[in-house]
Every structure is written in structure tokens, then in C-alpha cells.
Nucleic acid binder design. Sequence first.
DNA 1: ATTACTGCAAAGGCTTTGCACGGGT
DNA 2: ACCCGTGCAAAGCCTTTGCAGTAAT
Lengths: 153, 153
Amino acid sequence: MTTTRELFATHSLRCTRQRMAVYEALCECEQHPTAEELFRLVKPRTQKLSLATVYNSLETLTGAGLVRRLPTTNGCCRYDADTSEHLHVCFRSGSEILDVPPGLSHRLIEGVPRDGLEAIGRHLGMRIDGICVQLIAAPEPADGSPNGRADRI
Amino acid sequence: MTTTRELFATHSLRCTRQRMAVYEALCECEQHPTAEELFRLVKPRTQKLSLATVYNSLETLTGAGLVRRLPTTNGCCRYDADTSEHLHVCFRSGSEILDVPPGLSHRLIEGVPRDGLEAIGRHLGMRIDGICVQLIAAPEPADGSPNGRADRI
DNA sequence: ATTACTGCAAAGGCTTTGCACGGGT
DNA sequence: ACCCGTGCAAAGCCTTTGCAGTAAT
């Protein structure tokens, strides 16, 4: 078990009270909060914390690779301290993002054909070095309505 | 070949000059533009078009299922008139989104275990009715640098 | 004739930035 | 002692909204 201090040191990050509080709170979050949500969560337990610092910390941590920014469809970023490759479930409402359990995440990510990715990378002159999978969830209709069934995709 | 008029009629959408121009321009786009980019593209060929109307049109078309909003990581939405399930490549810079060729898209999407999705849906009390896959691309390093190789994922 | 859509400009979220101060190394 | 990180408030970007006029059905 490495401490936040050690982890930050490894990445040449200064251990400020605020930055550590932000990171540790994010690590404990099951759902992936927005900057604002994280601020409201961390603020009460931390003296002298501003929203700007939450943004700055998240930016720094993202740059260091300790935090991942999750793409969203409503212009408001969400953050994840689990940087391992795993899937997310997003609600059509855009209200929340959840993790898919590791088992299924792993199964799907293993199913990705490596050679295909490399081919794309070569074609673009880029390196494909990450994958982001979001399952889109909509409210379950009461009856078996004809459209939008689970097998649509 | 159905015309835009017919398509809109099918979805009970009014055929305004602006809305049709926005939709047809988006259909022709290879890359997936932001609202602003689309506006700059359509404006010269369309009399009386405002940016607000581009936003309104995209919102309406998205609601009708003719257009898809692509999640991004920088708080600025991109749009895609191809609503079939396919993969995207996103650059770390956030500057652009490209399509993955249908062949590989299809191969990957077919690899998704349906039973797993259904299990997740049941668990959430939701219906999983879409999937969004983004491959993340970074500039190819000149040498074979140790970290961030294509096989990281 | 009715109703929805448009343009314009203002307002609204989310995020970044400039600057002076304080804290980490 | 040095320099980065912080707080605050202002500015910035993207998007939505209110309203009066216009166009589609």
C-alpha cells in the first residue's frame, strides 16, 4: 500500500494539503464526480480550499496520469482516479457515470483486436494508447416495447 | 435514396431551410464538427442562419435520433450524422474525432458479450441501448520509448 | 390560421486565468 | 530561499433562453 505522499513524490508532484485531499476524495468516489461535486465533498474536511484549486489539482493529476478525465456529452467533465482500463455506464440523462464490474470490462477489452488498432495507428501516424468504452443506459420500459431493445446494438 | 425532406417528414420534423442545411452539411462531414465549426461551414451557403439555430437544430435532430452527440473531454460537443454503431478515434489534444473504418468497428462491436450487457442492464434496472467506443491517439514517438506503447491497453 | 422555428442578444454554466500571497521543498 | 500552488475574482468559452417576428403545415 503506497501512500498518497509516496505516489505524488514518484510523479514529482508537490504534496499540498488541498491536492492530497482532492486526490484522496476522488479515490474514494464510486461514481465519477464533476469538479463541482468533488469540491462540495472535499471542502468541509479541508481548510482553505477553493474551487479553482480543485480544477488546478485535477488538471495536474490528469497530466501526471493519476487521474482520468471522462468524456461526457453535456459539457461538464467527470473525473476518475482509477486509471486502469475499464468500462463505464453513462445514462442518457447525462446525470451520472458508473463503473462496469472488472470482469466484464476485462472480457470486452481483451476482445479488442490488437492488430486492428495497430493498423489504425499506423494509418494515422499516431499511437493508439487508450480506449474508452461507454455503455449507454436508458430507463427500462415497463413493457417489451418494440424499439430500443437490448439487442439494438 | 431518401431525401432529407422525406427523412424529416418521417420523424415529424419541419423542413426549414436552416435545419435542412445543417443536417445535410453534417452528413457530408468526415470529421465530426462542433456546433461552431458547422456554423462556419453552413453559413456561407445559407441565407439567414444564426449560431443559435445551429444549436437548436442539432438538439432537435439529436432528440429525433438522426444525429448523435459525441462525448468529449474538453467541454465542447461534437456531432455525428452517422448513427450506426461505429468506433471513433479521439486525439489526446481533443482537437478532432475521426471514424474507425466499418470493418474494425464491426469486428469490435460484435465482440461485445451480449449476455454481460443484459446482466448489467438488469442490475441497474436500465436498458443498455448503445455503446460508445473511443480509441485514444497520441503522437507517435520517434523512437521506441519505453512507456505508452501500442500494447499498453 | 395555427404553431413551430428563427434571429438576436442577453444570460447561464463550467472552466481558466492574472495576480498577490502563502506553503512546500 | 526559491518557486510552485493557492485563493479570489474576473474573464473566457460554449450553450441555452426570452422574446418578437417569420415561415412551415
